[in-house]
Computed example of a mutant assay.
Amino acid sequence: MNEQDFRDFVAARSPALLRTAYLLVGDWHRAEDLLQTSLTKTYLAWRRLGEIDAVEPYVRKVLVNTATSWWRRRWLGERPADVLPEVAGPDESDDLVARDALWRQVRLLPTRQRAVLVLRYYEDQTEAETARLLGVSVGTVKSQTSRALGTLRGRLGDRTLEGVTAR
């Protein structure tokens, strides 16, 4: 088998092989890479394939084996993106530390105060809805909220509490 035979094979069977590659990897760009890699491997073995009657099943086997080795590596290679990020995202590690400190202190609050804060600020419930859910009066919700926030301000400081609750 010569090089022209390989070119003829690639021209005739590439669309069908590309569909097979797509079904193996589920992404057209990766399927094209898989097909190119498999055809390169086939080209390197092309002279030996003159002894084989079924070249296409051989190429399909190379497709499957290459896709399997890619899957085992768990590295998907470079993936093209439609839009490149212009700037790096903000560093939110300080926010995470402050939020973690806040939730540690919230867990230390009495049960009712903790429930009021969770319903009011985390679940975004109104005072009336919070009162109904807890089976207490609206005044109790207001007083428990005030006490809980006062305790948290005393433990964490106004700046930390305002920065976290604003988000």
Rank of each mutant, 00 (worst) to 15 (best):
T151P: 02
E162Y: 12
D53L: 07
S146V: 10
P80R: 11
R48Y: 13
E56K: 01
A128W: 05
R99A: 15
E86K: 11
E92G: 02
V25R: 10
V10F: 01
W70A: 07
Q4W: 05
Q125Y: 03
L35N: 01
T160H: 14
Q105T: 07
K41T: 07
L119W: 06
Q125I: 00
T160N: 04
D124F: 05
V83K: 08
W70D: 04
A101K: 11
W71I: 09
L17V: 03
A148F: 09
R147Q: 10
A31S: 02
D100E: 15
K41W: 06
D100V: 12
R114Q: 15
A81P: 00
W71K: 13
G157T: 03
A67M: 04
E32A: 08
W46M: 02
D158C: 07
R167Y: 01
V59D: 00
R7L: 14
W46P: 05
T68Y: 12
Y58R: 07
T151V: 12
A67R: 02
R167L: 13
R99Q: 13
R13K: 14
R120K: 13
D27N: 14
M1T: 06
T151W: 09
Y22T: 05
G26D: 06
T126I: 03
R48K: 15
L119S: 06
D91F: 02
A131V: 05
L133W: 01
L156A: 10
T151N: 07
R112S: 05
R147I: 04
P90L: 11
L109H: 06
D82M: 10
D8L: 13
P57G: 00
V97E: 15
